[in-house]
Structure formats: structure tokens, C-alpha cells
Design a protein around this nucleic acid. Structure first.
Length: 465
RNA sequence: GCUCCCUUCGUCUAGAGGCCCAGGACAUAGCCCUCUCAAGGCUGUAACACGGGUUCGAAUCCCGUAGGGAGCGCCA
């Protein structure tokens, strides 16, 4: 049997890391089992669904590289099918029209709550076959009155629910539109979903869905309810607690593989391994190994992983991402060799691509502005004197490579009896404008002879100190 | 209120009765390396929610308690 999984977000809010992780688990499981992964947009709530949210879902999945084998399907385009199924259920007697009014239901519910009972529909209309004038009915599913339902969950194990705890849920509103729990059932059935991987907030809905599936003569899929992701403070992820659009992580300079790597390790592990390539994740992932408990999102570890991925990835693979971030700073470079060189030089001192781009401006602009603080500290009269020596030593270099530059600076250091630090800092400030940069030999090499000497000259000429 | 789920260092986790006076990772502290900043290396601080059982022996099994979460909508 081929495994078919699905990711079924509703576009009523933004796609955040919680959703991304369930999408990732579904995607990984499908890849691992050589199955199929389907994207389905659950937009039956016409009121709250927005095109913007749909856009974020599509763009987000695309950025993450979680490619769907089928879809996106939209529930709003399947209304005819839902209506057909409902008609069939009404004919078969597994569903019935309910003429209770909202007011009556509210009163019923309030009474139950007042009596400290579980609020539920009591099935008044099960046997009322007569329409009530002026009331357009909803359609309810006729849930079994006895027995129990066992969800054999891949994460939680067997979970048993008594049918007496379940009531007859509405599957079609009075305006005829189908409701969520029903659409899910029809879709999962029609699309041949074999494994439903979703947030454990849906565990309580599962027995009803299984009952409906059985009423429709379909075999329920295997379920895996994965725990939720909490905010860094352990509170539920909400708009106030870091529940930002997944696209924000792109803007902040994260590599998609790093985010995925971070997310997969929330609730899942593979020995002591922390860093996974996408391929390694696919090879090692098993939904059976997912934990039951919710986990808190830790931004610091994400940052660390992002750097790990920047360091381990092939520089050429990082180039497009760095370019995108440089572009945001108004820098448009297509110098592949320079970009790769910058990545290698900077990746050990940046946690994000955004940070890397910011710290690398000086490699791409014509002239640099000298940070006054750095100048005050490192461009003292003595330092300028040394800088003049450096200028002379470098100007005569036959070749301009990290090795030759390093040798030249070392020679100068012993010749004038000053530590390398005394020599490197003024040069660094002169060519980068700041007191922080990659090793000075690597920096000079990447910058090239022309620009390096020009910047040193500019500083020497700048202040007639 | 009822039903269901969850509970190992600050955080993510390993652990499926003896290998655990609990291992790894992030963070944190110290040291080393060092041309800046990093990265890296080494060392340290730090956890089995609580209480009962079962057992020669429990983080691991059972039962409670406490705490957290979810569902109970003509929302998804």
C-alpha cells in the first residue's frame, strides 16, 4: 500500500512554525515511505479565510521546499461533492435534518452547563421527520449511541472514546454549506489518505471522524497526532508569542533547511545527531518516534543551527540566499567568486544571512565610512605610522593572496617589533571601516589590491595627523 | 463541569527494570587557541513533577495527587 499523507491548513491565520512542523512531518513521512504528499487548503470558513493567508501558505511551502505531489486542492471547489455525500447520507439514514433553532440550542447548552453537564446535542430531531415552518434545517450526523471508538494513534497509542460522549454533530449548516469536520472526512476518503498527521488538538475530533468514515463505508486512515509547539516562554503559541508567518524567517536570514532541521528536532530525535541535511532527515525520520509532549520554541538553538547549516553547506548553495539579503541592502552583486569567498570568510561569524549581509557591505561598496569609535581606538598617530609601513609592504607584493599577505604582515611585524594585532587593527579599520572583520589576510585578499590600497591611502590622506 | 491528552537539566532531547549517584545538544560560567570578532577545543553548573505501590532492583511497570494542554460551536 502506498502511503498518502496530506497537509491541510486553513487560511484563517498565518502559516506559522506549528503548522510548518506538521507539514514537515507529513512530507518527511511520505518521502521516507516513497509515498505521496498532498496539499489541501481548508477554506470552508468563507468569513475568515483570506487570500493573503493562502498566499503565505503557498509561498511558505515553496520557500521551505516542501513540494506537494498533488494539490493544492481547495475545499471551496468541492462543495458539489460534499452536497452529494450529504444527500447520500440523508437517503441512507446516517444523517438527518435538524430543525432546532439556534435559540433552542443555546438554551439547551446553557442549561447543561448550569447543571455541570457536558454540553451536547441530545438528538431531539433524530425522530422528528416533520419540517418546522420557517426553519431551514441543518444536517446532523447520526453518531452511534453505544459502544466505543478506539483511535490507534501512532504517537499516543490506543486512545478509547465512548460513543456516549459524542453527540450528533452538524455536517451542513442551514445555508447548506458543509462544516469542517465533515469536509475533512470526505476529502481524506476521496483523496485516499492513508496517514493523517496533524496537531494533537484534533485528537478529540478523531472518533467522530472515524464514525463518519465508517458510516460512509470507508476504512479510517492511520492517525498520528503530534504535539503542539509552545512559545519560548512555554505559553501557547499565539500572535503575541512569536506566532509569526513562516516567511518572516526568510526575512530574518534563516536557511530553509536550518528551520526544517530545528523543527524536526522538536519532538523527534535520532540518537545524538543534531544537524541533519534534508536527505538525512528523510532517511532517518519515522513518525513512530515522535514524542507526545509539547515543546517550547527556542530561538537561540535555531540561530545556532542556522550557522551550522551555513558552515556546512556548499558556498555555492548559499550564494542565492546571500544575494537576496544583499539586495535588501541595496547591493546587487553577481560576482560568484566574490560571493562565495565572502560566505566562506563570514559564515563563522554570522548567525543569519541577514547578519552576514550587513557585515559584508564593505566587500561590495566602493568606499567605506570609518566608524568614529574604531578610528579613535585604532587610528592613533602611532597606528597611522604603522599603517604607512603596511601600505609600503603591501604595495610591493608580487601576488595578492591570503598566504602572501599573511607572510608580508608577519614579516613587517617582526621587522618593526610590533605584534600582529598592532598592525592588523589599523588596516582592518582602514579597509572595512570597523574593528571587526574576517582575518585580515582573507579580508584583504577578497577585497583585492586596488580597493585595499585605495582605502588605506584614503585613511592616510584623510587626517593630517 | 465533563471527556481526552501530556509531565527527564532554563530549553530541545537520550533513556523501552539493572549499562543511569541519568547521556547528548542549545544557552550559561571558566580555561585554551587567537590579528579583531567569531568559530573550534576542554572543563563546570544544571533534570527523572509529587506520593504510594509492584520488584532483589524503577526515570523506566501499576495506582493516585498536583500542574499544564485540548475538545465539548450552524470555527477550522
Amino acid at each position: 500500500m502506498t502511503v498518502v499523507t496530506r497537509f491541510a491548513p486553513s487560511p484563517t491565520g498565518l502559516l506559522h512554525v506549528g503548522g510548518v512542523r506538521t507539514a514537515l512531518f507529513s512530507w518527511l513521512y511520505a518521502r521516507r515511505m516513497k509515498g505521496k504528499f498532498i496539499l489541501r487548503v481548508e477554506d470552508t470558513d468563507r468569513e475568515r479565510s483570506t487570500d493573503e493567508a493562502v498566499g503565505v501558505i503557498l509561498e511558505g511551502m515553496d520557500w521551505l521546499g516542501l513540494k506537494a505531489d498533488e494539490g493544492p486542492y481547495y475545499q471551496t471547489q468541492r462543495f458539489d461533492r460534499y452536497r452529494e455525500v450529504i444527500a447520500g447520507m440523508l437517503a441512507a439514514g446516517t444523517a438527518y435534518h435538524c430543525y432546532c433553532t439556534k435559540q433552542e440550542l443555546d438554551a439547551l447548552r446553557e442549561g447543561q452547563i448550569a447543571r455541570k453537564e457536558k454540553p451536547r446535542y441530545t438528538g431531539i430531531c433524530r425522530d422528528r421527520h416533520q419540517p418546522r415552518p420557517g426553519v431551514s434545517p441543518v444536517v446532523r450526523f447520526k453518531n452511534p449511541l453505544e459502544g466505543s471508538v478506539v483511535v490507534d494513534d501512532l504517537v499516543h497509542g490506543a486512545v478509547t472514546f465512548q460513543n456516549t460522549e459524542l453527540d450528533d454533530l452538524i455536517i451542513a449548516r442551514s445555508d447548506g454549506t458543509p462544516t469542517y469536520n465533515f469536509c475533512v472526512v470526505v476529502d481524506d476518503m476521496d483523496m485516499g489518505i492513508t496517514h493523517v498527521i496533524r496537531g494533537d488538538d484534533h485528537l478529540n475530533n478523531t472518533p467522530r471522524q472515524m464514525n463518519m468514515l465508517r458510516a460512509l463505508g470507508a476504512k479510517p486512515p492511520v492517525y498520528a497526532h503530534v504535539p503542539m509547539i509552545l512559545g519560548p516562554d512555554g505559553a501557547k503559541l499565539s500572535k503575541r508569542h512569536g506566532a509569526v508567518s513562516v516567511l518572516q524567517y526568510e526575512e530574518e536570514g534563516f536557511l530553509p533547511d536550518a528551520l526544517l532541521n530545528y523543527l524536526v528536532r522538536l519532538g523527534w530525535s535520532h540518537g545524538d545527531q543534531e544537524v541533519f541535511t534534508r536527505e538525512e532527515m528523510v532517511a532517518a525520520f519515522d513518525i513512530h518516534d515522535v514524542n507526545k509532549a509539547a515543546s517550547a520554541f527556542n530561538p537561540e538553538k535555531l540561530l545556532w543551527l542556522n550557522q551550522q547549516h551555513m558552515v556546512r553547506a556548499a558556498p555555492s548553495a548559499v550564494v542565492p540566499y546571500l544575494r537576496a539579503h544583499l539586495k535588501r541592502l541595496g547591493i546587487d552583486s553577481s560576482d560568484q567568486a566574490l560571493l562565495e569567498g565572502v560566505i566562506v570568510a563570514q559564515r563563522e561569524r554570522a548567525k543569519t544571512l541577514k547578519e552576514m549581509a550587513q557585515n559584508s557591505r564593505f566587500f561590495f561598496v566602493d568606499t567605506v565610512e570609518i566608524d568614529p569609535k574604531a578610528a579613535a581606538k585604532h587610528l592613533t598617530p602611532e597606528a597611522l605610522a604603522l599603517l604607512r609601513e603596511v601600505r609600503a609592504a603591501l604595495a610591493g607584493l608580487a601576488e595578492w593572496t591570503p598566504v602572501s599577505l599573511h607572510a608580508a604582515l608577519n614579516d613587517l611585524s617582526t621587522r618593526v617589533g610590533a605584534g600582529l594585532g598592532k598592525i592588523a587593527q589599523p588596516v582592518r579599520v582602514a579597509v572595512t571601516g570597523t574593528a571587526v572583520s574576517p582575518p585580515i589576510d582573507a579580508t584583504l585578499a577578497l577585497l583585492g589590491r586596488e580597493r585595499s590600497l585605495a582605502r588605506i591611502d584614503a585613511v592616510l590622506a584623510r587626517t593630517p595627523a
